[in-house]
Design a protein around this nucleic acid. Structure first.
Lengths: 242, 242
DNA sequence: AAGTGGTCTAGACCACGTA
DNA sequence: ACGTGGTCTAGACCACTTG
């Protein structure tokens, strides 16, 4: 239960942790409504303002979403979030459009040392490795290698099912109950390999922007490693520092 | 003055705008203390909670900084902010250290079309163009070209004064009263030119990470264009998506 | 009309830093 | 001891959405 008094953490923080846990455990599913502030306050024996403060911070963390007059909901992954929150490539006019994707292959393998390290798995654990190319207005622009631990993602890409949706995080959430909450990205400049050059129709050695992303759940468990190599002839990676 | 009633914007928003204006106009200088929440509430004829909500959002925007027991201060640029807020290059272990810098040259020129566009100046307006190289543990790693409008930056780099400090935003703030508040960055992969290759001791054509940054003041006026080209052999650009 | 989140108030008490 | 920000309460009213 909640504790109060000297030396103990503040009430709203305890409530924040409690609400986070309920979301993390799947007690409240993405997209569903949570009890009203007043109900939660009664249940927890605190004032509405205290619950409100906890919820406010979770809204800032993109864990919950408020809708005036309707209620408070667990955030979920829709196309908008994929585009404006997790996708940072824009064309050189600053316009953001999701590229479409086509899968080149999808294989089950033991994790390489690098994959194991990034996903915090033992070397040799089974993983699913997807390679796909992403096109902007029919022009191949990015090559992506996506690595997922085989465990929670069970049958993904099985039975020759290369028909993966464009926005994978929606799939992870709906199909496997795994919600991506944050991601760490490392960007480097690399030279196009022969393989990449062929796919992207560029010269071997052309500089490509490499984005290595580790996607994490709410409790910071890494669940996806994605390495994208992107031609920056007509596009760039956009980041705003506030 | 503050307005209330139907259709008018919320009180705390008006207060937020008012406080922002006072900071923007230099009425309260970076690093200085602002009146206490209680004093502001009395002055403005609202409750402390309302002032508090306005200040809370400005703290989240990095405009103000609270220090418990001491007061609320206008944020300023120190080394910590330069490193953790505006500098995104880390080594491949994830460690962040500021590189040192040495200026190659510093010239006054009319703005190129590109510079004028990015800084929202008329083509041909006088600008200051600084080129410097940045070293990590004595290894040249980044080449930077920094463009500033000559107007507000008066005598910067004049009289052969190539002794610019490493963290320029502190200089802009203290010397010229210009506070950088946010920045837009565009990242691309490019091939090292002969000039860059020589400085960085690399082969011509080596892929470099180009970071094109436009730095803005609180009222979103662009005041610095900075193009960094960075070897990503031992370092990378780190971005976290929450 | 009823229920939700959004704003605002007035006042209490705590934790922290300074003098 | 005093003033600051930090937490918490109880209650009022508004704005919005749904039945």
């Amino acid at each position: 239960m909640l504790t109060t008094g000297k030396g103990s953490i503040s009430l709203y923080m305890q409530i924040k942790d409690l609400l986070t846990a309920r979301v993390g455990k799947g007690e409240w599913l993405p997209g569903s409504i949570i009890p009203s502030e007043i109900n939660l306050a009664q249940e927890l024996g605190v004032s509405q303002g205290t619950v409100r403060k906890a919820i406010t911070e979770l809204v800032e963390n993109n864990v919950l979403t408020r809708r005036q007059g309707r209620g408070t909901f667990v955030s979920n992954h829709d196309t908008h979030r994929a585009l404006f929150h997790f996708f940072h490539i824009t064309d050189n006019k600053g316009l953001k459009v999701l590229p479409d994707s086509s899968v080149l292959h999808c294989r089950r393998k033991p994790a390489s040392r690098m994959e194991a390290s990034k996903l915090r798995l033992a070397v040799g654990t089974n993983i699913i490795r997807i390679e796909r190319v992403r096109n902007f207005s029919a022009k191949p622009t990015m090559v992506e290698t996506i690595t997922l631990p085989a465990r929670p993602f069970g049958d993904l890409g099985r039975v020759g099912n290369y028909d993966l949706p464009n926005t994978l995080y929606e799939l992870y959430e709906k199909q496997y109950g795994i919600t991506i909450h944050s991601a760490d990205e490392q960007l480097r400049a690399v030279a196009a390999s022969r393989h990449e050059a062929k796919i992207l129709k560029l010269e071997v050695g052309t500089p490509l922007l490499e984005i290595e992303r580790v996607a994490l759940t709410l409790d910071k468990t890494p669940v996806e490693l994605r390495i994208s190599r992107c031609s920056t002839r007509n596009h760039h990676y956009q980041n705003t520092i506030f």
